[in-house]
């Protein structure tokens, strides 16, 4: 194995603008040995490093079965701005993968409900693409349902908008926006993503739920789903904190007693529900 505290170099294969403030970049690990040893699970993240500027934790937005290793980034600070200026052929540093991913093995014989808010779709796109790929390989269980609920600020902020038609082959997809611009044609819903729970019918006793988005959205989604009868052990959230070292040493990502970088970022709702209600933990 390789040392996860020292970045290795990765080459930008291509970049793609997704929305006005997000973009996807595909990276290729330069070192052959590391490339071979590098394995990740949907839901894990990498630290992307621009020398001289710094590091940022970015979720992997491609599936392990995809040819390209993709990261979808929102321009928010110094590092992400520097990342947004990358062009194909540029070299950056990378460390990872870090953390605990989505429990895909538990999804084997359960229905799957994906709930995403904003850029929270990035680590869940990894799941969606993974399901798409593995679905093609095995015969579809006719009774197994897959649902994808996604909320964005406005129609313009929907990330991966061009990919949803493909997901519709396997997923029941529902989109909502906080605010629809009257100038623009929008036939999806308007309102919070939790409102979409009314649009779908699902069996709470055999549904596995993956949620990623702003903390308040995840908390509300979790509580709403529990009210609808989903056991809290079957709800998974991906938490966000200030990840700095990625290996549980620097202390920046503490969420109560949890190291989000290594105990998470994906947590079972039952593990952290007690902590979620406490302000500024």
């Amino acid at each position: 194995m390789y040392d996860k505290s020292v970045p290795f170099d990765a080459k930008v294969k291509w970049t793609k603008k997704e929305t006005r403030d997000t973009f996807t970049c595909a990276l290729k690990i330069n070192n052959r040995d590391i490339q071979k040893a590098y394995r990740f699970l949907p839901g894990q993240f990498n630290m992307l490093y621009v020398p001289g500027i710094g590091e940022a934790p970015i979720s992997i937005s491609s599936s392990p079965l995809d040819h390209d290793l993709m990261h979808t980034v929102r321009v928010a600070g110094d590092v992400t701005t520097a990342l947004s200026n990358l062009r194909a052929g540029d070299m950056i540093g990378m460390r990872g993968p870090f953390g605990r991913g989505w429990p895909l093995e538990e999804a084997e014989d359960l229905d799957l409900l994906i709930v995403a808010g904003g850029l929270g779709i990035a680590p869940l796109r990894s799941v969606a693409r993974h399901v798409l790929k593995t679905h093609a390989a095995k015969k579809r269980d006719a009774h197994q349902r897959r649902m994808l609920l996604y909320g964005a600020k406005t129609p313009k902020d929907i990330v991966f908008r061009d990919e949803f038609p493909r997901y519709r082959d396997i997923f029941e997809v529902f989109l909502t926006v906080d605010r629809a611009d009257p100038e623009e044609y929008w036939r999806g819903e308007a309102g919070l993503v939790t409102k979409l729970f009314d649009r779908i019918t699902f069996d709470p006793r055999c549904t596995l739920v993956f949620v990623c988005g702003p903390e308040i959205m995840m908390q509300n989604s979790g509580r709403e789903l529990i009210l609808r009868g989903v056991p809290e052990e079957r709800i998974f959230l991906s938490m966000e904190r200030n990840m700095n070292c990625g290996i549980g040493m620097c202390g920046h990502c503490f969420f109560g007693p949890k190291f989000v970088c290594k105990d998470g970022p994906v947590f079972r709702f039952s593990e952290i529900e007690g902590l979620m209600g406490i302000k500024e933990l």
């Binding site: 020292v6 170099d9 052929g89 070299m91």
Partner: peptide
């Protein structure tokens, strides 16, 4: 670590 980097190469 010490780094020396350019657009196309990073040495650590």
């Amino acid at each position: 670590f010490a780094f020396k980097s350019s657009r196309t190469a990073i040495a650590i």
